[in-house]
């Protein structure tokens, strides 16, 4: 009994933290632009910065 309660609490809080993460990611605008991040990640960090 006790152990099931504990597991239940753990599973719901883990799922709850995922829900919070989801809402945060939407709120911070991560899904507003789905085109630039995949391009941006391919850029090198200024290798040819000579000046």
């Amino acid at each position: 009994m006790g152990v099931i309660m504990l597991l239940l609490l753990a599973s719901i809080s883990v799922a709850g933290s995922f829900l919070a993460a989801f809402i945060w990611s939407v709120k911070s605008g991560q899904y507003d632009d789905e085109q630039s991040p995949p391009i941006r990640i391919l850029f090198d960090d200024s290798v040819t910065d000579k000046d």
Binding site: S11, I12, A15, G16, F18, L19, F22, I23, V26
Partner: peptide, 14 residues
């Protein structure tokens, strides 16, 4: 609407 969807998904699965 997306938040509502997220909450509904969370509750439904549990």
């Amino acid at each position: 609407k997306i938040y509502r969807l997220g909450v509904a998904g969370f509750c439904f699965a549990n």
